[in-house]
Design a protein around this nucleic acid. Sequence first.
DNA 1: AAAATACAAGACAAATTTTATCTTAATTCG
DNA 2: CGAATTAAGATAAAATTTGTCTTGTATTTT
Lengths: 144, 144
Amino acid sequence: MNISRASDYAIRGLVYMAKKPAGTVCFVKDIAKNTNSPASFMSKIFQTLAKSGLVHSFIGTKGGFTFNARPEDITIKMVVEIIDGPVVLNRCVVNKSSCQDVGNCDVHFMWLDIQKMLTKALSSYSIADFAAYKKGICDKKMSD
Amino acid sequence: MNISRASDYAIRGLVYMAKKPAGTVCFVKDIAKNTNSPASFMSKIFQTLAKSGLVHSFIGTKGGFTFNARPEDITIKMVVEIIDGPVVLNRCVVNKSSCQDVGNCDVHFMWLDIQKMLTKALSSYSIADFAAYKKGICDKKMSD
DNA sequence: AAAATACAAGACAAATTTTATCTTAATTCG
DNA sequence: CGAATTAAGATAAAATTTGTCTTGTATTTT
């Protein structure tokens, strides 16, 4: 019951980028170094992020990655789902009606409900929030 | 980002038990058959549940498992944590203050907050809820 | 007492997923 | 051209999950 290391790296990488002036082109090498992650792995991860359209990649000597969306529009849920795949708490709850025997399955609707709460939580924070946050400085109201 | 098959089996097994009259002693063999799970695996799972004190085990000819707590007092979070271990969304959020560099870490407090919402969701349902639920019959108000 | 039944415990193993690494391209800049 | 950087995909090591199997222990029945 956790996000993968890859998602953690992805978020840390995006947060690192979000702290730079908008439009800054970042090298994977730098992103990796500043997030304590293996460069080759981070490279793979950013490839996936680029393919999803979240960031833009530039090949070549002055290449690198930039945001393709505003950091405040990129939710944690989006990143996690791009890297780890859809958030599905239990195999019987792929989406609203994919359980083999919905209506007969004891646990389907409960998991669906719990899953909704989780995705809501994951959607409540953006990369910008993560980038801006320092204890006591963040204006975001944390849940009680 | 999901619970393990083992936790799914555990919950289904407990829900099966919860539908029987209180105090009924159940065999792993029956529990497994009625939840479409491998008996030997379910046996392992119930061993763990017994060790945790959630259920009571009896050895011998008339042996089996009974609840050691009321199904309405057993939350989904309890079961998941017994089987899968503590719910920790990200490695830097083991508990309130275990991140290596809290205060310096960009993501610690955000994940802590998201994790709180998840554990709250997991605590909002009990085995009794799962056992009682049928679409439209459950009196539990689902989240919107 | 012996036999049958059911859980306990732990070793073992197969399958899957995660976490990478490496190599070979393709592209861009100077 | 040559250096720098990402793209893509094959490969592989490590960890986790998902089981199985065997042996032992306790209980009940005969």
